[in-house]
Amino acid sequence: MPKLRKSTTLKAAAVALGVAGIVGLTISSAASLNLGGGSVGAGTSVVAACQPAGTPITVGFTTAYSATAPAGYTVTAVKLGAIDAACAGKSINVTLQGASSASLVEVTGTAAAGTVTLAVPGATTVTATSVVGTAVVIYN
């Protein structure tokens, strides 16, 4: 009987090692998955006399997943960063552009030094994949 117990133990160890190897390969494959960098929006146009030429305003987006049609990620807010203090208190218009520079939505607000987040109106659905550019204007 001792030989049977040893054989069963070896088989169990071999199965456990095989499972551990498969799990290890799965984890290492997921860890090496490269999705690439990028953001929603392909271009940015900034026109603001108050912003120094060497300090571009950054544009970012807040997104949320929606399971209702059209399913996918939608843009819920536009985040502008690196806004110069000279622009504080001025009006901001941001237009999210689709194909052929078509306006998808315009959001407005007031500039502040640093970062400003402008919410996309709740009744407006802008799919993240439809945004190909942005236009930003800061004015008096």
Rank of each mutant, 00 (worst) to 15 (best):
A71D: 06
T63I: 08
A99C: 02
V137F: 05
Y139W: 04
V59R: 02
A30V: 05
I138Y: 01
A128C: 03
G81P: 01
A69S: 12
T44D: 07
G38S: 06
V132Y: 00
T8K: 12
G98F: 02
A128Q: 06
T127K: 10
T9D: 09
G60N: 14
L17T: 15
T110A: 12
S45M: 08
D84V: 09
Y73N: 11
G89L: 01
I92Y: 10
C50V: 09
T58V: 15
G21V: 13
T26F: 15
G24V: 03
G109W: 06
A53M: 01
P52L: 10
I83R: 01
V105P: 01
A71S: 15
T55V: 14
V59D: 04
P52K: 03
G72L: 10
G60H: 02
A53F: 10
T95F: 00
V137N: 13
A31K: 13
V19N: 09
L25M: 11
T55N: 14
Q51L: 05
T9H: 14
K11V: 14
I22M: 10
N34A: 14
I57H: 05
P52E: 09
K6P: 00
T8I: 15
G21W: 11
G81Y: 10
I22R: 04
T58I: 12
G36I: 04
I138T: 08
A71C: 08
V40D: 08
V23D: 11
Y65E: 09
G109V: 03
L25V: 07
T129D: 09
K6R: 15
T134S: 12
A119G: 05
V107M: 05
S28R: 14
P56Q: 07
C87D: 04
S91D: 14
V137C: 02
T68K: 12
V120R: 01
K79W: 00
T76E: 09
C87R: 00
V19Y: 11
S130A: 14
A77T: 03
A111D: 07
T58C: 05
T125F: 00
I22C: 10
F61E: 13
M1A: 12
T62C: 09
G24D: 03
D84L: 00
G54V: 08
V75R: 07
S45V: 15
V136N: 02
T134P: 04
L33H: 13
L33M: 10
A20S: 10
G98H: 02
L118A: 06
A64M: 11
T58S: 15
G98S: 06
Q97C: 13
L118N: 04
S66Y: 08
A64E: 13
V132C: 00
A14W: 08
K6Y: 11
K3W: 13
R5D: 08
G109E: 09
A48S: 11
T124H: 00
G38E: 01
G72R: 00
P2F: 11
G60E: 08
A128H: 07
A135Q: 07
A69T: 15
R5Y: 00
S28P: 00
T62F: 03
L10D: 13
S45R: 15
A30H: 02
K90T: 09
G98R: 00
A48G: 02
